[in-house]
Design a protein around this nucleic acid. Sequence first.
DNA 1: GCTGGCACTCAGTCCGTGCGAGTGCCAGCC
DNA 2: GGCTGGCACTCGCACGGACTGAGTGCCAGC
Lengths: 340, 340
Amino acid sequence: MAHDERRLQVLRAIVQDFVSTNDPVGSKALADRHDLGVSPATIRNDMAVLEEQGYITQPHTSAGRVPTDKGYRLFVDRLSSVKPLSGAERKAIERFLDGAVDLHDVLGRTVRLLAQLTHQVAVVQYPTLSRSAVRHLEVVQLTGSRLLLVLITDTGRVEQRVVECPADVARDDVADLRALLNSAFTGARLADAGGKVPELLDTAPPHLRALVAAVGAALVETLVEPGEDRLVVGGTANLARVAVDFPGSLRPLLEALEEQVVVLKLISEVDSGGTVLVRIGEENAHEALAGASVVSVGYGTGDRALGGLGIVGPTRMDYPGNMAAVRAVARYVGHLLAES
Amino acid sequence: MAHDERRLQVLRAIVQDFVSTNDPVGSKALADRHDLGVSPATIRNDMAVLEEQGYITQPHTSAGRVPTDKGYRLFVDRLSSVKPLSGAERKAIERFLDGAVDLHDVLGRTVRLLAQLTHQVAVVQYPTLSRSAVRHLEVVQLTGSRLLLVLITDTGRVEQRVVECPADVARDDVADLRALLNSAFTGARLADAGGKVPELLDTAPPHLRALVAAVGAALVETLVEPGEDRLVVGGTANLARVAVDFPGSLRPLLEALEEQVVVLKLISEVDSGGTVLVRIGEENAHEALAGASVVSVGYGTGDRALGGLGIVGPTRMDYPGNMAAVRAVARYVGHLLAES
DNA sequence: GCTGGCACTCAGTCCGTGCGAGTGCCAGCC
DNA sequence: GGCTGGCACTCGCACGGACTGAGTGCCAGC
């Protein structure tokens, strides 16, 4: 009915005004700034209902209303449409990301770009190893018994790992090992690579067995080690701008961003379909992020998800704008990585 | 004369008390907490002189005194001895840094360790490329005309770079190129590598000339590009703890840390002799760091400096303790990198 | 079901006061 | 000459009361 409909308009107006002004919004201000077609008194009645339903709340008796997490949720789900980016913004994305020389550079630019577009803290996950495929494996002898294993994936990610061998290794053996590893692994998904080690061990020439065992173990370790799923963080300076939205202190949030593991979990839990995910306040189920919202999306090429990226900010944020920026950047990065 | 001597004791006491309490310190409190052997009235006279000389100042008329940048400078230069670390702290350093698997890991642990020991923001510079030597060069074909050049240095640093070639490259040529590059560059200092490119170009077999030219150009670019001198930053959460010391906002400081270039400049300007450098407040000659101090030192193996590391914090910091921590960590990291 | 009117609530602000920490100065003492 | 105790003075800050105004809930009327 038209009744409920207007109540939702009121909620939308409250969210919009509060996001832009950071002042609790009252019935009179709402009636002035929006064409709701009714008087402040009527809006007051609607607000009373919205409050009872838990969508808004008042910080204290004689103040205006403020959206709750639940209110933002409804706003995001039903009341907002994703803002299209301006032409200037699209141009900025292109200009910013073109000219990147390697993966590290691409992700660094991405995170700066995202932070700049949204004025929030931006995070980008390195392409997940397990979803990548092996492009090349390189073995370099550091000392007699110490080898450096370098793994290059098809997403341009380079992983390195020092392998301590039980005994000194002959030079020729290093070359043999390199050839062996590459013929076995090149092109394989990293997720499958672990399973191939035993097989390789069986077919390897006897004098290389011990070597393959040591390197294989290191390789598997590198692959499964989730700590190696790195995160690039940028735009923390933006937190200072919105410090008012975090009543206690910025500390828990800064710690969470540095710890990485919590944020990584949130960012990597993305839908494969390219849907932008929004987690609001308490929905994050982690104390440090209780006052924060996370907007994230997966990036990748076509059907293949490589990782996630997104932003972290106060619950009082411009959801439509930020969702649009996150989505647009993810698309562009996806294309960029598909080319290489 | 004993006269001046006591005045310096007063300054030292002021710095110590102010650092630990963050309250402007008055003559009575000084007389109570320190055995200066004179009455508050005498201390007042000394303080008046110290103020006239610019070592201390009062925030307002009826408050105690606070050290100025100049006061801290005198304290660091003449009034403090570097605190030896406790056994527990030494143990912590070892425990923290042992078990690192690669360079990235070593630096990541270092920065966390330093942040934890000093409760400040810690920064560590990647080993400078130009001072390292080439351990190995790897060339991987990404697409027909696109090669990935991977540079591995003897400090364990791995640099990557995509090279676009004018035409498609044959598989055999890639192998030849790899052999050629390695025989020419392995063992060479990166600083000298640039000069070897023309020479290599002359001696290269004709069909590889174009390839060598393209790759050589990319190599030189990688070496001289100063932006690639990366910085690892950690412990920004500690800034929230000392936010009171930055009256305006943390923002400029956070921005400087993210920008990296300013901080990098400070951190990399280290003495080669292992002396701990302290820059206090305005001495930093950069607006964003005007209220901050930087404690830095070079790390390296024996005579070879690899890079710098240090901390950034408010001018009101525990200089002796932080200098000791920075020095100890730098030594340990130096040893660690020398082994590999 | 909407509207204007009205009494009520209460956070934020302003202002005046008192308190206390800290100072500078001075006369006296060693 | 240098140190000390005493004393008057300054001024930031915390406390408390009054005022203001935005905003609300409720109610009678349309």
